[in-house]
């Protein structure tokens, strides 16, 4: 597997000193799905916007498909965007209500000067690919259901043959029975086209279902990362454990966290989870643990916690 996207040391501070994303590394391989989970305010959507360059990072680098995405500007950035597309949470607000959905799909191709002369034909192919009758291309957003609109949003994102789709809470607004249809569609498309996904959600069950690897975010940091199955069975970070146990219907003993996450303006000293952590010790007040390969963890499992012993590096 080769690396498609590699971001290092990403940081974004908003006005008022809100440290939304603080020193985050992300790697996505071709054709794989990276899940990002976390609760509201953890920085997962900001991370997505940074990776799409809808926001410019204050610090850090982003390499995409061998090119420097972090510093690209103007025409070069616009061209790169063909390869990087977003499937937003609410297609009702991201599709122009005054044009037929087919025109919204076509617009993406026109913006990238792609498929000249056969755009309307490609719109119909894309509609078929996402399981919609091609004649629905002539309908307006208000004439389609939530599930159908989300299919249109996926078709639009696929119009420019991207290598990476960022799905930001893309199925969260859908009813469960419809959500399953869209999740299956995303899996089919990936198998067919080999496109990579960054799948952002607060719903752990959905992420576990669709992702190969998962990154867990808390207050602007990744606190644990690893293969979806390993993270699920043997979480190493206390926050991941609490998050999993908080899922309704989770079988094992529940860890109830006290209080709410602290404000991202006024971060605690040391480890930023320590104020709610059931395993916090005195050292956590001063030690800000880095995300490291965990001894005793599964292959590729990393965690940022004082209790996690780092792997002894065997390479010179």
């Amino acid at each position: 597997m080769t690396v498609l996207l590699e971001a290092e040391g990403l940081r974004k501070v908003f006005s008022g000193g809100v440290r939304a994303v603080d020193d985050v590394d992300i790697e996505v391989n071709r054709g794989e799905t990276l899940g990002i989970v976390g609760e509201s305010g953890c920085g997962k959507s900001t991370t997505a916007k940074l990776l799409l360059r809808l926001l410019t990072p204050d610090r850090g680098s982003i390499r995409f498909d061998g090119a420097d995405l972090g510093r690209a500007r103007g025409t070069r950035l616009r061209k790169m965007r063909a390869d990087l597309q977003l499937v937003p949470q609410h297609p009702m607000t991201s599709l122009n209500p005054r044009v037929p959905v087919g025109a919204s799909i076509e617009f993406n191709m026109r913006a990238q000067d792609m498929y000249p002369g056969r755009r309307s034909q490609r719109v119909r192919e894309l509609m078929a690919m996402v399981g919609l009758p091609p004649e629905h291309a002539d309908r307006y957003p208000h004439e389609l259901s939530g599930g159908q609109l989300q299919r249109v949003a996926i078709a639009r994102a696929l119009a420019t043959d991207p290598k990476l789709l960022v799905c930001d809470e893309a199925v969260s607004a859908l009813d469960k029975s419809v959500q399953a249809q869209v999740l299956n569609l995303l899996v089919d498309i990936q198998q067919q086209l080999g496109v990579a996904y960054i799948f952002i959600s607060h719903d752990l069950a959905v992420v576990e279902h669709i992702a190969d690897r998962v990154a867990v975010m808390y207050l602007g940091r990744i606190v644990e990362e690893g293969p979806a199955k390993t993270l699920w069975r043997e979480p190493m970070h206390p926050y991941t454990r609490a998050l999993l146990s908080a899922m309704p219907g989770y079988a094992q003993e529940r860890i109830i966290l006290s209080g709410d996450p602290p404000s991202p303006v006024n971060l605690p000293s040391g480890c930023r989870f320590r104020t709610r952590c059931p395993d916090a010790i005195t050292a956590c007040e001063s030690f800000d643990p880095p995300l490291v390969g965990a001894r005793g963890g599964g292959a590729g499992q990393k965690a940022a916690c004082v209790h996690v012993k780092p792997l002894v590096s065997t390479s010179p």
Partner: peptide, 15 residues
């Protein structure tokens, strides 16, 4: 139609 955590991945059965 709801994904069951911890159970082998596969296709969901949507309605």
């Amino acid at each position: 139609s709801v994904p069951t955590p911890g159970i082998a991945r596969g296709r969901l059965s949507p309605i």
